[in-house]
């Protein structure tokens, strides 16, 4: 991940910012908040590589964040992530900004690789965790077996009559 030139200067590294947004935001506000994060990253000199828009998830445990001197508890949140490239020096300012952002409950910045790392599709989406309702197959005319009474009667007689 770390690429060093001959002079020893460190070039840009690939990082990923995963964040949880407060669930109280409206749908449009969520998009705005995600856009704000992207804009801020660009402002700090980051090149955006890939991202996933925030989706509502049920948190595995209750999280708390102090907002305006009040401890708020959250059981669900909007989870999104952005992969970006930036010089290691620029990362501290990004972290500081995220620390002070009110809409972000929690965030994580990790070193990653440029390639796509998620193998399963949308494993976090709420709907995928719920059990799917069994699909009832309606009986069609073709599926209904036409039973010939005569044939059945003959078969029964064959069984009943002693040989």
């Amino acid at each position: 991940m770390e690429k060093e030139t001959i002079e020893g200067a460190v070039t840009a590294r690939v990082y990923e910012l995963g964040y949880l947004l407060v669930p109280t935001l409206a749908e449009e506000k969520v998009r705005d908040a995600a856009q704000k994060i992207k804009d801020t990253l660009s402002q700090f000199g980051a090149t955006l590589l890939s991202e996933d828009s925030p989706i509502s998830i049920d948190l595995a445990y209750t999280m708390a964040k102090t907002i305006e001197n009040k401890k708020e508890k959250f059981d669900e949140a909007y989870f999104g992530w952005i992969k970006f490239e930036v010089l290691p020096e620029g990362l501290a300012s990004i972290k500081n900004w995220c620390d002070n952002e009110v809409d972000i409950i929690r965030f994580i910045i990790i070193k990653t690789v440029r390639e796509n790392t998620v193998s399963s599709k949308r494993s976090l989406a709420k709907d995928s965790t719920k059990k799917k309702q069994p699909v009832l197959v309606e009986e069609t005319e073709a599926s209904k077996q036409v039973i010939d009474e005569k044939v059945i009667d003959e078969q029964i007689e064959e069984l009943v009559t002693p040989k």
Binding site: I108, V113, E115, T117, V118, S119, S123
Partner: peptide, 15 residues
Amino acid sequence: SNNIKYIDYKDVDIL
């Protein structure tokens, strides 16, 4: 065996 080189924290199903 599944050729996964980077174990992602977002891949909850695998984890």
